[in-house]
Design a protein around this nucleic acid. Sequence first.
DNA 1: CATATTTGGTTTATAAAATAAACTACTTTA
DNA 2: TAAAGTAGTTTATTTTATAAACCAAATATG
Lengths: 96, 96
Amino acid sequence: MADFKDLDPLLHSQLRLAVMSLLVSVKSAEFVYIKEKTNATAGNLSVQIDKLSTAGYIEVEKSFKGKKPLTTCKITKKGLQAFEEYVNALQQYIRK
Amino acid sequence: MADFKDLDPLLHSQLRLAVMSLLVSVKSAEFVYIKEKTNATAGNLSVQIDKLSTAGYIEVEKSFKGKKPLTTCKITKKGLQAFEEYVNALQQYIRK
DNA sequence: CATATTTGGTTTATAAAATAAACTACTTTA
DNA sequence: TAAAGTAGTTTATTTTATAAACCAAATATG
């Protein structure tokens, strides 16, 4: 049996993984939408989005919807690759 | 799309998950063996094994191999169930 | 009209987790 | 008999995650 590959710690977090999971399928999503889908608090989500953004895994665009702030996220190529590698590494842990 | 199910925080840890993953397949393993397979430090492993044991996910038996201490771990029914649930919940996050 | 309340967040503080370092107890080897 | 190794545990430190507090603007309410 091969040794366990390290799991990207940036992705091995429930909330960040959920965010990435969403972004993989929808390609672009608003803060509020992500917040609802993930059941996260705004504060927590804000922090985790920041981390993903700093890592270059997602792109964050701040604009306005009418007069309200609007934060839109989309996954980057780097993020997609990291996600795929994470999933591959993880398979080793969870296949019975 | 259904909301994301919570991931058992006890299992959502690289080292603890690796330990459980090992125990699922081998059914019983020694401390040193687990340590080598997971590349963990003894201290870290000791702590994480303790947590899994306290949760009732594994059973820990302390004996002696000759004159050296021997810690043997095996997964419990509860642990196996938790592992399976974790894997199921996780699927939702990682299917593309 | 003024004052709550809601929206869409960010910042900061606290709690929990992971990890590393130090230590224990004993054994083996030189 | 001193040094080094084995098999761990305990404690301290660092990192993370989460919650609580806050902010600015908009909208609703009496």
